[in-house]
Write a protein that binds this DNA or RNA. Structure first.
Lengths: 170, 170
DNA sequence: GTCTATACCGAGATAGAC
DNA sequence: GTCTATCTCGGTATAGAC
């Protein structure tokens, strides 16, 4: 999964995966029938990671604190974002270029976070919750794209500081 | 160039390109020595398109009008963004996954627009110009990623309306 | 300069021994 | 269930006739 993030899913060969897993090439097909099936597994794993994060954030009582913590996670991750972009966003974007069901499935990597953010803004009593969630997630995804393009984690720091102030002032 | 946008650069074969251009496969190598050279040509072409756009926007006297027109262009392009994402952003992101000089060259697809936006905010007398430009471009890139993931042009409409109001109020 | 044919290689997928 | 060997196809790139 790390490789498919660093070099892109399609560029990562089954030989790469087998080597990383310490098993011979032919053995991969015992666990996955096709490479697309591996894509599905990676999407599921990323979604599980998000659900775990979401559960952790929901231990906070205040929706505002949850939103601030969400933005802060991007901030904390800025070195990695500068190197390879967002794990969810880059995978999602890559798979959008493919025909078939994989693109739809990959869309959940962003629609699930968007839905959760919407719920937080709604709990805060701010409207339109959808629009605010969209603005926040767009900014975070966009700054990840830019940080990756510029190879500069500083832009993430600047933008997340801006967004956290924006959340505070809502 | 259209194909490499629709299906991704690496997924687009030289056979695809040759067919689209109406020439036999072998002939492509008369114009480009390698596929990477084609990538460079596409980047150059996209940059030229941006320079042309920039020149057109600079015919407007007011920096604020330029910024509003820039946001409006994304709005006008929302159908295409929902289908395949931003031409500059998706190409840039894809090429970031590759080693070598191509990634750096592709970074200009976003650093050039960012630099121009910064100049506009500076001309407006708003500070920090870099931070404001970063916020605007992040939001536009991010909403393009989301529109593509959700296959929904409406999110572009919502976010650009938000951003245009934000520019007006600066 | 333009085309056909083909070499070469890497990647996904399979067969079948153990 | 685990491994080796191999098939097959598609894609980049080249050779060389016209």
């Amino acid at each position: 999964m790390l490789l498919s993030y660093q070099q892109g899913f399609r560029k990562t060969t089954l030989a790469d995966i087998a080597e990383k897993a310490g098993v011979p090439l032919g053995n991969v097909y015992y666990y996955f029938k096709t490479k697309d099936e591996i894509a599905h597994a990676i999407i599921d794993e990323r979604l599980s990671q998000f659900y775990a994060l979401r559960a952790k954030l929901e231990s906070m009582a205040s929706p505002k604190d949850r939103l601030l913590a969400f933005a802060q996670m991007t901030m904390n991750n800025r070195q990695q974002l500068a190197k390879g972009g967002c794990e969810m966003g880059t995978l999602c974007s890559e798979l959008q270029k493919e025909p078939g069901e994989l693109a739809i499935e990959a869309g959940r990597l962003l629609s699930e976070p968007l839905g959760w953010l919407t719920a937080q803004f709604r709990a805060l009593g701010k409207a339109p919750a959808e629009g605010l969630a969209l603005h926040l997630l767009s900014a975070l995804q966009g700054v990840s794209v830019l940080a990756n393009a510029l190879h500069d984690p500083a832009v993430v720091a600047a933008e997340t500081a801006y967004l956290k102030a924006w959340i505070e002032e809502l």
